[in-house]
């Protein structure tokens, strides 16, 4: 406690960001330290799990130290530690979990494990202080494309998800093939702004009538075939047009289904979460489609869309408040479900 406020330290190491943050009363970000490994993994064209694990270990102490320092608090003033225990890369997760447990034990602080996906949703509590459940959540990231009904702080009902590639994964693959490189999402977003989204007719995959699931692998194959065909015919490829058309095909389906889900469950708000939630075209299209049906769209600022410790702290705060028991035998669960 400090100045009457309940302080939670959130720790996140599920993929390639080593992150820690101090959040007051589950809502107010006092510090948010993110040490990204993107520069290291770029040389490999994607995240290498063993290297990610090694880097997390080297950086975790200083990231936690800086989060405390930036918030101007001592470990003794921390009331709760929250740590991502899944889903994610197992070797990466276990650095955060081992660190969180060691600190919880050394400083006598209760520890709760947080589902990374719940964390992404909770990022919205930090951005929009008045937001409370119920609402519909749309999570779009490198590993996830999911529509989740959130009736309460600690209830998440997954209504639909991808059957093959996540949206971010499809962005990464196509970006690599058209020479934009890694990470694909932001690069496609940028290139698409200079391109024509109607120039190439990529298919929109809606699956069965009424389904809230996604499939992006067919679209990805179509994009690869298109590029092959153009190159073989000796035609020059307009990278911006490919990026714009491909992006449009992905985000249009996502936006349509998110709005469909909100309407079906009578939710008046859709909150966006995950790295791809900062895609500018997805944001614009969501506002357009939801707005026309009287549904509000809330989204976190880009820094809270990427993996961070603040969202984990917020989710941990609400889990702890609702009675989740502290656990020093916490294990990493790479395939953790919602």
């Amino acid at each position: 406690m400090k100045d009457g406020r309940f302080l939670t330290l959130g720790i996140e190491t599920s993929c390639d960001e080593t992150a820690a943050s101090v959040v007051a009363d589950g809502r107010f970000v006092m510090s948010n330290v993110i040490s990204s490994q993107i520069d290291i993994h770029t040389a490999y064209g994607g995240v290498v799990p063993e290297i990610a694990s090694r880097k997390h270990l080297e950086r975790i102490n200083d990231v936690i130290g800086k989060a405390l320092e930036d918030a101007e608090v001592s470990p003794k003033e921390i009331d709760l530690i929250g740590v991502t225990y899944g889903p994610g890369l197992v070797g990466a997760l276990l650095i955060g979990v081992a660190a969180a447990k060691a600190m919880a034990y050394a400083c006598d602080i209760p520890l709760v494990g947080v589902n990374h996906m719940h964390g992404h949703i909770a990022a919205n509590y930090l951005e929009h202080n008045e937001l409370e459940p119920p609402f519909m959540a749309l999570i779009v990231s490198g590993g996830h494309t999911e529509i989740v009904n959130v009736p309460d702080y600690n209830k998440c009902e997954k209504l639909g998800g991808t059957r093959d590639d996540a949206a971010g994964e499809a962005f990464d693959k196509v970006a690599r093939v058209i020479g934009l490189g890694y990470p694909g999402g932001p690069k496609i977003d940028k290139a698409a702004k200079e391109g024509d989204p109607d120039s190439i007719a990529f298919k929109r995959v809606y699956l069965e009538q009424g389904s809230l699931d996604f499939s992006f692998s067919g679209l990805k194959t179509q994009a690869l075939n298109y590029l092959n065909q153009e190159r073989q015919a000796g035609r020059e490829i307009n990278v911006n047009n490919v990026a714009a058309s491909f992006q449009e095909a992905v985000v249009e389906v996502i936006a349509d289904k998110a709005v469909m889900a909100a309407e079906r469950y009578g939710q008046k708000r859709i909150v966006m979460a995950g790295g791809v939630a900062s895609n500018s075209r997805l944001r614009a299209l969501m506002e357009e489609k939801a707005g026309s049906r009287g549904i509000d769209v809330l989204k976190p600022s880009p820094v809270l869309c990427t993996d961070n410790g603040a969202m984990i702290a917020s989710a941990a705060y609400y889990a702890y408040r609702s009675g989740v028991k502290p656990d020093l035998e916490l294990d990493a669960v790479p395939g953790l479900e919602f």
Partner: peptide, 17 residues
């Protein structure tokens, strides 16, 4: 590798705290 990292991380954080 995994085992090493669990022990070393635990020791580093306990030492720091």
């Amino acid at each position: 590798f995994t085992g090493i990292r669990i022990g070393v991380t635990t020791a580093r954080i306990m030492s720091q705290m």
